[in-house]
Design a protein around this nucleic acid. Structure first.
Length: 941
RNA sequence: GCGGGGGUUGCCGAGUCAGGAAAAGGCGCAAGGCUUAAGACCUUGUCCCGUAGGGGUCCGAGGGUUCAAAUCCCUCCCCCCGCACCA
């Protein structure tokens, strides 16, 4: 048989074992808990979104959760670990459309990376078929990797019963006043007539929506009409320093905007039509006609000229710019350049330009002068096209934003920090009807996948979840402090995100999901319907049994079983369910809730996990609020980021089929910790598979009757106890990497030493070792466990650390031998020798050690010893020894001679030369250096 | 920019909270053993120097506190993630 075939046989072997135990677990329903006397533990993982197969990222999050569930189960908890499927929202619809269109990239990615067979893929042309297919695949994958999930509770978020549950939730939130109406800006494709998400974009994924302040400068035209010049700015406070208006010498549009006449660029007009404003085009005007004319600053009432500037970008905001030469480098340079230019002559502006003086309105403690001029001079900027101008602008803006204070010229705003003025001023201007807001992308272009340029659309009368509600936030923050967050520094992250959270639009026009029950033209957005569904798992078991149907899920029923509110009789009556059933469901719920642990990828911190907290706190009584959250990092493939829609991607199924469930599990648990990212490396996975193979063979060969433990066995047992302690501590802290490292690799190292030392009683730890490893590699452990037991190791008790089994003496003895062998080998590296003579330290050295035991300071130790006359006489010898002793930190005393004699054959075998314990053969010069624990050695050729 | 995390030996990563001779464990590489043979197994080595078990260097950079700093304090540099309405 070729090595290659042998290699494959190994994999198949594991897969067969795995199948056997998965079937038995399922057949005997070992992971289907019911309320009992035992303490409960309810762990949940966010259900996967099914626009593809489960991948390595899911594998990581779910495996961590499963290992923890298994650990807790063995620790004596009644563990509920359920799973459902998320299909709400737009991506599945989008995918169906792409498959319908036979989109090339999609077809390639789904066959190549998602492993969907070609003939199946072409038929996945409706959302329903996609959900059907991927939910089956997901379920299969999760069974194949051996998760201890209670599958009686599985559901999909488009189930009618689930929709009833969501409706109930939304009615509840509305009653609490937490669903409100509002308006907000979104990225929008005019062609598709739909808001666009990141993955719908060709360009501009990084663009954010920024709100410019509009300040309504104006002029009176020849017919006496007031025409508004809506200057757009990110720095409204500089309105006090405006010296002129900039327009580009091109055609502008005059439009009626909410009854006023506005002059804006042609592009800006288009954009305005997507806002909530009423907009109508009424004419055009060439900007050239306005140069040299005057406008009024509505804040200061000053008359200021309208001037030409090429740097004006008509596709940015309104295309009308106010000029603040004292604080805006662009304005300053443009003004200086204009003074020298042909344009000044052409439009007859020289006289006007001479009178313009920059107006300083901010002090940032950088001394006297005009800030924009200073920075422009400093950087040697000559004209508007100099790229350094962008840098100068940013630099100055940053400095003034952080350090700037408004000067007296700003009147009522004098003394306020620049960083604190923007929102206030914007509000004031709008209140006085001389201001407005204009939304614009931070980066351009933003282009939809259909090729159309996107705009910012302001959506009116949208339903919002009122997360900005200060009382709601305060309650969430307060509860957060009582929660366990893993890793702990994420608590700070959560704190910040809670404070940062604004109202969230929770209604959509398009997608799968549940309609807002009181406003059925809207669908509930898909993150908003996934906040408290862990409660639904309790109902799901009854729903799947056919006991509860959608029509039974009335408000009274849900109020009663989930909140304990209302009347039992009412709940029974309105639901049409039997009394015992309602009572049973309520009892189940009371037993299982709240969620004890929610474990998730770190990508959900700033969204789902926040909503999860907010909604629980809004809806449920305090005793049912979540107890703990854990987050983990991502998984990359050979250093490359995974992508569901572009590849590369490794599916859970493929990982398991190629490597086996236990190898996959252990790799993903061991390869990284907490929120640090894991990397899936084929080569490493294969070596790990060898480790497990070795382990399997080792246990199989050594698993027998335990013999009475000897000294070496006691050492092994002692080491094992420390491993148990380390593993348990790691698991309590949700550290699977540390746990696997200890339970598997470090124990393995000790076992190797044990066998090398001639240990032949490995069984003394095997029962416990299998139990210890069972949460990580359950199938192999189950298989091996059944060599000698009939029970499921998955349901056994986890090993407990037992201090009485710790044997410090045997540990010291083994340590002593390791050191001795290593020292001899070190010497043999440099000295050709046939015999090594060993001399244990002289008896007086042991006496001194007794005297100074526990003493850490050399000075004090020296004093203590020198109190005795016999040592004072030995003077120098003693002090040299003592220094050495303190340095080596020796504080134990062993029967060294006996230890060496008993193990002399082993030592000889290890070092490969003759070894003799005979102090007479070791010269005095060597003996001097010996200390307890470190005998003198002498090499003779 | 704001917020969170991080920078340790060829790589991944312990160690940092509670200062006491840094480098657990894994991977990779090398040598020896075993073997018909092997990518399998066992052992050893893997910052530098060393023909006696030793010595030296070292934790992004630079300062400081201390008998003693990867660890505490200050300044700086670099990297990753989030900043939303999207699952």
């Amino acid at each position: 048989m070729s090595p290659c075939n042998l290699f494959h046989m190994v994999q198949i072997d594991f897969r067969e074992i795995e199948k056997v135990w998965q079937d038995k677990w399922e057949k005997e329903g070992v992971f289907q808990p019911e309320p009992s006397e035992k303490p409960k533990f309810f762990i949940t993982i966010p259900y996967p979104y099914l626009n593809g197969n489960l991948h390595a990222g899911h594998t990581r999050t779910f495996t961590i959760g499963d290992a923890f569930a298994r650990y807790k189960r063995m620790k004596g908890y009644n563990v509920l670990f359920p799973m459902g499927f998320h299909v709400t929202g737009t991506p599945i619809i989008g995918l169906a459309e792409l498959i319908q269109k036979r989109d090339e990239n999609t077809m390639r990615v789904y066959s190549e990376f998602h492993d969907v067979p070609e003939n199946v893929l072409v038929n996945l042309d409706t959302p329903e078929k996609i959900v059907e297919y991927f939910s089956k695949e997901a379920l299969k994958s999760m069974k194949e990797i051996g998760y201890s999930i209670d599958w009686r509770r599985v559901f999909t978020t488009t189930d009618e019963t689930y929709q009833r549950f969501i409706e109930w939730q939304f009615y509840r939130l509305r009653e609490l006043g937490l669903v409100v109406k509002g308006t907000h800006p979104v990225r929008y494709c005019p062609n598709d007539m739909n808001p666009v998400e990141d993955h719908d974009l060709l360009h501009g994924e990084n663009a954010t929506v920024v709100d410019f302040t509009i300040i309504k400068f104006y002029y009176i035209d020849s017919s006496g009409e007031k025409i508004i010049l809506p200057c757009a700015t990110l720095r409204p406070e500089t309105v006090f320093g405006v010296t002129n208006i900039w327009l580009k010498p091109v055609k502008y549009t005059i439009a009626k905007v909410n009854g006023e006449k506005w002059l804006v660029s042609e592009e800006a007009y288009e954009k305005l039509t997507f806002t909530e404003k009423e907009v109508e085009m009424i004419g055009e005007v060439n900007a050239e006609e306005l140069f040299g004319k005057y406008a009024i600053n509505p804040v200061t009432q000053q008359r200021i000229p309208i001037l030409p500037a090429d740097f004006v970008d008509t596709d940015n905001a309104t295309g009308v710019v106010m000029s603040v030469p004292a604080h805006a480098p662009y304005d300053y340079v443009a003004l200086e350049e204009l003074k020298r230019s042909e344009m000044a002559k052409k439009y007859n502006l020289s006289e006007i330009l001479e009178k313009i003086e920059p107006i300083v309105l901010i002090s940032s403690g950088e001394g006297e002068g005009i800030p924009a001029k200073m920075i422009v001079d400093e950087m040697g900027i000559k004209d508007q096209t100099d790229p350094a101008l962008e840098r100068a602008t940013k630099l100055l803006y940053k400095r003034e934003f952080h350090k700037g204070i408004l000067l007296d010229i700003t009147g009522e705003y004098a003394g306020i920090k620049v960083s604190q003025i923007k929102d206030k001023l914007q509000r004031d201007l709008i209140e006085r009807d001389i201001g407005d807001v204009f939304y614009e992308f931070s980066e351009k272009p933003v282009v939809c996948r259909c090729g159309t340029k996107c705009v910012v659309k302001v959506v009116r009368d949208q339903w919002f979840l009122n997360y900005s509600n200060p009382e709601w936030k305060a309650r969430v923050l307060e509860h957060l402090e009582k929660m366990r967050i893993i890793p702990d520094y994420y608590k700070e992250e959560f704190r910040n995100k809670i404070e940062w959270l604004k109202d969230k639009a929770c209604a959509r026009r398009k997608g799968l999901g549940t309609r807002i029950p009181w406003d059925r033209e809207w669908l509930i957005e898909s993150l908003s319907d996934s906040t408290i569904y862990m409660a639904y798992y309790i109902l799901a078991k009854f729903i799947n049994q056919g006991v509860i149907k959608a029509e039974n899920m009335t408000k009274e029923f849900l109020d009663y079983v989930l909140l304990g509110e209302g009347d039992f009789e009412e709940a029974v009556k309105s639901s049409g369910l039997d009394e015992e059933i309602v009572k049973k469901i309520r009892d189940d719920f009371v037993y299982w809730y709240p969620v004890d642990m929610r474990s998730s990828g770190k990508d959900l911190v700033a969204n789902h996990l926040l909503f999860f907290l907010f909604h629980h706190i809004a809806i449920f009584p305090v005793e049912l609020w979540p107890r703990a959250i854990a987050v983990n990092g991502y998984v990359s493939l050979e250093g490359k980021k995974m992508s569901k829609s572009k590849g590369p991607l490794l599916t859970m199924k493929r990982a398991v089929r190629e490597n086996g469930a236990d190898v996959t599990r252990m790799y993903i648990l061991y390869t990284s910790e907490y929120d640090s990212d894991a990397d899936w490396r084929r080569r490493d996975v294969e070596t790990l598979s060898q480790h497990l193979r070795r382990f399997y063979d080792l246990v199989k060969e050594n698993y027998g009757e335990k013999k009475e433990p000897d000294m070496l066995d006691r050492w092994l047992i002692s080491r094992f106890q420390k491993i148990v302690k380390e593993t348990t501590d790691a698991m309590e802290n949700f550290q699977t990497r540390r746990a696997v490292n200890a339970a598997f690799f470090e124990m393995m190292a000790d076992v190797r030493w044990y066998l090398r030392r001639g240990g032949d009683n490995l069984s003394v730890i095997l029962d416990d070792w299998l139990r210890l490893l069972s949460p990580f590699i359950p199938h192999i452990c189950e298989e091996l466990w059944h060599l000698r037991h009939d029970s499921f190791v998955s349901l056994e008790n986890y090993p407990e650390y037992d201090e009485n089994k710790v044997d410090e003496e045997s540990e010291m003895a083994e340590e002593y031998l390791k050191n001795l062998i290593s020292d001899i080998k070190e010497i043999l590296k440099f000295v050709e020798a046939r015999t090594i003579y060993i001399a244990v330290a002289e008896p007086w050295k042991f006496d001194v050690l007794e005297i100074v035991k526990g003493e850490k300071e050399l000075r004090n130790a020296m004093k203590k010893v020198m109190e005795r006359e016999e040592y004072r006489k030995m003077g120098k010898n003693v002090s040299a020894y003592l220094k050495n002793l303190m340095k080596e930190k020796i504080d134990f005393i062993l029967q060294e001679e006996k230890l060496i004699r008993d193990n002399i054959d082993f030592i000889k075998k290890e070092v490969g030369v003759e070894v003799v314990l005979d102090s007479d053969k070791v010269p005095e010069s060597k003996r001097k250096a010996s200390i307890p624990g470190k005998p003198a050695l002498y090499a003779v050729s």
